[in-house]
Amino acid sequence: MSVVLEARNIVRDYHVAGSLFSKGRTVHAVKGVSFTVDKGKTLAIVGESGCGKSTLARILTLIDPATSGDLFIQGKKVDIAKGDLTKDLRREVQIVFQNPYGSLNPRQKIGDVLGAPLVIHGNVPADERRDRAMAMLKKVGLGEEHYNRYPHMFSGGQRQRIAIARALMLNPSLLVLDEPVSALDLSVQAQVLNLLADLQDEFNLTYVFISHDLSVVRYIADEVMVMYFGEAVEYGTRDEVFSDPKHDYTKTLFAATPRADPASIKARLARKRAA
């Protein structure tokens, strides 16, 4: 099995500039994180806000360079600070952002949204762009009639489908999903998760799935990494992490997740009556 993504000791520091009254300081957003993801698998990264998971997503998507550490994509070492970022590499890695209301240009028709990556990457003629966009719309569960519409005419779940379609236009091998379902309702969330599973099977995609919702992670992930203040405190297969959490923070996280089964409701009501 081939390794699509490997990170070795990734570090990212942000320097906060000082002023007349305060000294500058350094924020260590990601402190030496290492992992590998095999082809066709899903790595879930879990953690609370401010733990560095989105910073890591930006590094993996080649938006920001890492301060130190090595990143390998398809076995090739990549350092965008040294200008390694080629168009071919850019096609390999795509991202879907959390908020589908913010990540689509309100003045761009859906057809243009989907065609834009093809315009940037190579000379695809207009009618072929159109055909490929139409085909992709059907793949993500939308229809040809949506081609000429604007983003405001779609619901949140449909917009997230469009964002996924856009990310897939260039046939990437790795898709980074930064909280793709946290802004969606439960029933819509189920549809989008099903879609992601179908697409993974069809295109043999590799996912890095960032989330703070443990029930979603348990459903979709093959491997799980828990981050806490920039460090990976737990890393293992889904079953290892969920059945036998080692780190205190992971245990706290599990304990804090609300449980929706009759047994725990009974226990709570009994506690309440006793009080």
């Binding site: 029933s187 189920a190 929706a260 409701i265």
Partner: peptide, 27 residues
């Protein structure tokens, strides 16, 4: 939670990833 009566509630419960059976979440 034990015995939802309306179809909508049943659908909502089934869509919880916790209750997933098999590969697909019912919608």
């Amino acid at each position: 939670f034990e015995n939802p009566r309306s179809n909508y509630t049943k659908a909502l419960m089934a869509a919880l990833p916790d209750n997933a059976t098999g590969d697909r979440l019912p919608t």
